[in-house]
Design a protein around this nucleic acid. Structure first.
Lengths: 344, 344
DNA sequence: TTGAAAGCGCTAACAC
DNA sequence: GTGTTAGCGCTTTCAA
């Protein structure tokens, strides 16, 4: 919908020097000024210098809004993030931001709360030409709900994606990564290995659970249902509660794999408050390798995701798409690695 | 400088429905369509409905770039943040974002690294009409360096500010808040109270040190120079190292006040790795009250800043300024409180 | 190598 | 109430 917008107060415009003023001052046409400003080589050096001098003395700055209207692009990219406060996303943002800026794009951080409705309102900015493209980090289920209405818009999926959708994406092999993490625990001699998983509306949650399952069954262990807890959020408190629940079991796990570092760090706190020592009483492996992971007590063993590179690649995919709308969607899987520390 | 921009590849434009098409389809003028779209009440209901129907069937969306060129505003706000990864700023961002969106503004998160040069390039976006205003969270010393060149631009300071500058700001009374924190420690019987401070290019660092000093001298204690450590960053590792250094003193502090929660959490880790129990061997008080503070072991006693409200107020100040460039700069101080937990 | 002029899609002043 | 029209400041043919 194109709703009538609320009657917002209008700010007063700032005083401005237009391209026409520069042209007048330099005794050339606006076309010539434009050519100089855009670095076109056809302009005679002397003319060029005169224009630059005028720009200098007048303190002229291009009005990018006008330029963008003319070129039909906003040079704005949207990043749709389910939870801005999560450090995992913060690092991806950094990757996105650096590459986007190199290409002359500005990035708007959009908090979606993993909610389809809010996603829709953000996508509407694309329709209104407010932004050129979007990078979506929301659950694959949310993306799926979006796909139909937004097929013609320029967007890519990052970290989380639905492989069946005709949208470019970049991520890691979550199933394999989770399997690696659990195998590490198995190698340390653990047989009862718990899983702190999150909401399975996330593809990564389903895939990492699979990886946990893979590793256990390959080791001849039958995963028990009560070894697996699903939290409703990724915050520290949720990890804390999940660990408490796991340790209350008659035969509690001797090791726990959490699908996110924030959950794992909460789990550490939960175990400690029950007087457990880590990794002696219970070992913990996390996922992501956020900065805090190296600072916990003990430092957290975790699956390192190439977060920065994830973000960088996502922008690249988006720019490729913008440059050629017709191209078949590219799918990129980046390598992960296990960051071994003291918690497991 | 208005540099010739790099020759960036141009994305292909998306297919589009203009306001003229809607007008044609509804048998009215573009002006009428514009009126309906902007919610002006003068339009006859029947006409309005016809327009809306045309909008619906054509799938029209306003081109905000064109609108913004005409209204001479970009509806974009900049938030200049020294460190995007710091959870303190993440929460302020949330406050900013929510209020900005309510007023039809989009927010761009700008990572400055507390660097004057990078700040300058961001401010240039204001000059090029790419953004309408900015909220600056950088050190007062950086702001000070900026003030001269950017006096005519619309910007406000948040959390950190130079009271002597003619720029609107919102913050808290850092000196008083720090004094409260240290007084709490004194009430618990501590006499040797360390300070983990950060770089004193920050006004808040200087002010909080003052508060620490105030409380001690009021209690008849002479603050010792070696009780005070200045870190070069706010990350967990810096807090860890500072605590280690403090505890190596001949007569180590029995309590430590850290000027940021991230520092305090790192300090907790540092103390623990030396086998100290908290608060028994050394008590710790932080500053900010980020989400993680309630999840540490033990939970962190800290000075709670109204982060969300800080952000909300900053936007309000900025919008006020945008609405009336001439108004005298408003200065707002928000209340803090002590969040009592187990670490002190 | 440069200039004149036609828009980009919209809002708003003015006319009817 | 509604239509006509003149720009907003820029880029980009097309001519010269």
């Amino acid at each position: 919908m194109s709703e009538p917008r609320a009657n917002l107060p209008r700010p007063a415009p700032a005083p401005s020097v237009s391209i026409a003023a520069v042209a007048r001052h330099a005794n050339v046409s606006v076309a010539t000024v434009s050519r100089v400003l855009n670095g076109q080589q056809v302009v005679k050096p002397a003319t060029r210098d005169a224009v630059m001098a005028a720009v200098q003395t007048l303190g002229y700055r291009v009005n990018e809004m006008a330029r963008n209207l003319r070129t039909a692009e906003s040079r704005l990219l949207l990043v749709l993030v389910p939870d801005v406060g999560n450090p995992f996303y913060a690092e991806i943002m950094r990757g996105i931001d650096s590459v986007a800026r190199q290409h002359g794009y500005l990035v708007v951080l959009c908090d979606t709360g993993a909610d389809v409705e809010r996603e829709h309102t953000w996508f509407d900015l694309l329709r209104r030409r407010r932004a050129d493209g979007a990078i979506c980090l929301d659950p694959d289920t949310v993306q799926h709900a979006l796909a139909h209405d937004n097929a013609h818009l320029a967007w890519v999926a990052c970290a989380e994606f639905d492989p069946a959708m005709a949208v470019p994406y970049v991520g890691i092999d979550n199933r394999l990564a989770a399997r690696d993490a659990v195998q590490h625990l198995l190698e340390r001699g653990h047989r009862r290995i718990g899983l702190i998983n999150t909401d399975e509306t996330w593809l990564y949650a389903r895939q990492r659970k699979q990886g946990w399952h893979d590793a256990l069954t390959e080791a001849g262990i039958t995963p028990r249902a009560d070894w697996c807890i699903n939290t409703h959020s990724l915050d520290y408190a949720a990890g804390n509660a999940a660990m408490t629940q796991l340790l209350a079991l008659a035969a509690p796990p001797t090791a726990v794999f959490a699908v996110s570092d924030t959950l794992a760090i909460g789990a550490l706190a939960g175990a400690r408050s029950l007087g457990k020592r880590i990794p002696h009483d219970v070992a913990v492996v996390g996922f992501d390798d956020i900065a805090l992971a190296a600072q916990t007590d003990p430092p957290l063993t975790t699956v390192a995701q190439p977060m920065r590179q994830l973000g960088e690649t996502a922008v690249q995919l988006l720019l490729d798409l913008l440059a050629d709308r017709g191209r078949p969607p590219a799918h990129v899987l980046l390598p992960h690695r296990l960051a071994l520390r003291a918690s497991a």
